[in-house]
Every structure is written in C-alpha cells, then in structure tokens.
Amino acid sequence: MGGMATHLITGSGSGIGAAVTRRLHERGDDLILLARDAGRARQLADAHPGARTLVADLAEPDRISWAFSKQPMPDRLDSLLHIAGIVDLGPIGDLRPKTWHQQLNTNLIAPAELTRLLLPQLRAERGQVIFVNSGAGLSARAEWGAYAAAKHGLKALADALRQEERANGVRVTSVFPGRTASPMQAKVHSQEGKEYDPAQWMDPESVATAIITALDMPRDAEIDNLSIRPGH
C-alpha cells in the first residue's frame, strides 16, 4: 500500500467499531466514517480529528446511492469495514414484517449496497472487505431468528463476494465474534430480562485486535473466516 491506508468504517460510534476506529486513527491511517445523519457525522469528526465522514442511513439501503451522489466519494479505498449492526430479539411467532425488514436492511442489504458502490475503489487498490458477523451467523438460537437470518445472509454475501472478487485481488474476511461487552449487548440483556455484567463478555478491544490482524495480513495470505469467543 503506497502511503497511508484509507479505510471506510461503519459502526464507528460504539462497541467494536469504536475500538477499531480509535486504533486505526492512532496509527495514522486515513479514515472515512459512515454516519446516519449530519449531526452524527459532526460527533464522529470531532471524536477523530482528521477523519472524513460520509452520510448515509443503513436503515434505508435504497437511498444510499442517492445520498452518495450528493457527496464527494473516496477515489481510493484500501478497506471497507462493515461493523454497524442492530439487534432485535423475539420469537418467530411474534415477529412482524417491520422487524424483519429492519434487521435485513441494516445488517444485510445495506452492507451489500455499500460494497457494490465501493467495489471500483477497492478493486483499484486490491483492497479488502471485512464483515463483522456474529456467532448468530453460524447458528440460530430461539428468539434470535431475524438477526441470525440477516447474519447467515451476511456470511453468504461474503462467501460469494470472495469468489467473485478473488481475480480482482480483493480479499474478503468474515469475523464471527461471540458476545462482546457493548451497548448492543446491554440491549440484548434487557430484551432477555437478564442482568448485564460487561466483565463476563469479551472486551471490544480484543475483537478489534482480531479485525486489525486480518486487515494487516501480508498479501500472500488471507483470513477467510475468523471465530472469536470469550476465553473463560
């Protein structure tokens, strides 16, 4: 990579995304942080001086290309890091289409659309796409149906993309973290009616270490799938 690497990151506002963003920022890489609206973009820019922002709402994937058409786009990109996600639990018997659409839009269709729109820049740099998936992308438990369906879909997206883009030199990695101490985890616990103790779960920094390891692998190697689980 000539000069500084440029990364586009979703979900940089909290949890794993915040940890990855801080570490890449500290080492001097160029960052483009996706924000859902202008106010959020200002917060992210203030938190990471020198980072650029792009505004698009992952909850509305049909509007992302329109939003991007109104903003300057990066001319080169070394990596696209899909870290944003939302979770909503409930039994299949209670889940309405609205919840399915929300889970699929933010967790699957938006990453697909972002990838489509940024592939030309990634191909030009022989870059990398990293999907932060979930243990729920490998098996689905009771009440996790909609989220797990989206994450199973995200694994399929990554697997297909890996084969399609191999000839273009684009690496594709899926990371499957177990439960991580984050705002999302706090929400899950409240939906499950359980006490939340962050000390019981992985630190987002540990997952960030794994993501950055995949990012920094020498070009003669590629991490396709990486599962990370709490070590106690």
Rank of each mutant, 00 (worst) to 15 (best):
G2A: 15
M4G: 12
M4H: 15
L8P: 01
T10P: 05
T10G: 10
G13S: 15
S14D: 08
S14H: 13
A19N: 04
A19V: 02
R22Q: 09
E26C: 05
R27E: 15
I32Y: 15
L33V: 00
D37A: 01
A38C: 04
R42N: 04
R42M: 06
R42Q: 10
D46F: 12
D46I: 08
P49M: 11
L54P: 02
V55F: 00
A59P: 01
R63S: 12
I64Y: 06
S65T: 14
Q71L: 07
L80S: 08
H82D: 08
L89W: 11
P91V: 06
I92Y: 12
L95G: 02
H101L: 05
T106R: 11
N107Y: 06
E113S: 06
E113G: 05
L114F: 06
L117Y: 03
L118V: 05
A124H: 10
G127L: 09
I130V: 15
N133V: 03
N133W: 04
L138C: 14
A142T: 12
A156P: 00
D159R: 05
A160C: 04
R162C: 00
Q163G: 07
E165D: 05
R166P: 03
A167V: 14
A167H: 12
A167M: 15
N168F: 12
N168C: 04
N168Q: 15
V170W: 02
V172G: 02
F176S: 04
G178M: 07
P183Q: 13
M184C: 09
A186E: 14
V188N: 11
W201S: 07
M202E: 06
D203W: 03
E205N: 04
T213Q: 02
D216N: 12
E222C: 12
I223Y: 06
